[in-house]
Computed example of a mutant assay.
Amino acid sequence: MDRDAAFTAFLDAHQRPLLRLCYLLTGEVHLAEDLLQSVLVRMLGRWPKLRHIDNLDAYARKALVNQYISWRRRRGSGEVPSAELPERAHSSEDSAVLRIVLRQALMRLTPKQRAVLVLRFYEDRTEREVAGLLGCSVGTVKSQAHHALARLRALAPELASHLPAMNDDSAWNEGARR
Rank of each mutant, 00 (worst) to 15 (best):
A160P: 02
L85T: 11
R72A: 07
Q37G: 00
L50W: 10
G27C: 05
E127P: 00
L25Y: 05
L106M: 15
Y59M: 07
H147A: 06
P48H: 13
R3S: 08
Y122P: 00
K142A: 11
V41F: 01
L85H: 12
A150C: 04
A115P: 03
R88W: 04
W172A: 03
A63T: 06
V80K: 07
E158S: 15
S92I: 11
M1G: 12
A105K: 10
R99T: 04
L18H: 07
A13L: 04
R20N: 13
Q15T: 03
R151V: 03
L155S: 07
A145H: 00
Y23C: 12
V29Q: 15
R73F: 06
R72M: 05
L21I: 00
T140A: 13
Q144P: 03
L24R: 11
N173S: 05
E127M: 13
H52A: 10
C136W: 00
A63I: 03
Y68L: 03
L18P: 05
H30R: 13
N55Q: 06
G135A: 02
S137K: 14
R20I: 03
Q144A: 10
L98Q: 10
D54P: 04
L64N: 01
Q113R: 10
A63M: 12
A176S: 13
T110W: 01
Q67R: 15
R151Y: 06
D2T: 12
L44S: 12
D124G: 02
D34Q: 11
H30W: 13
L19Q: 11
A115R: 11
D124Y: 13
K112A: 08
R103G: 12
V41L: 10
R72L: 02
V80C: 09
D4K: 13
H52P: 01
W71M: 14
S143E: 14
V65A: 09
E174K: 11
G132C: 03
A32W: 02
V141R: 10
P111K: 12
R20M: 08
R61N: 01
A171R: 02
P17M: 09
P81S: 09
H147G: 04
L18N: 14
V118Q: 12
E127L: 11
M43K: 11
L44I: 12
E127K: 14
E84R: 14
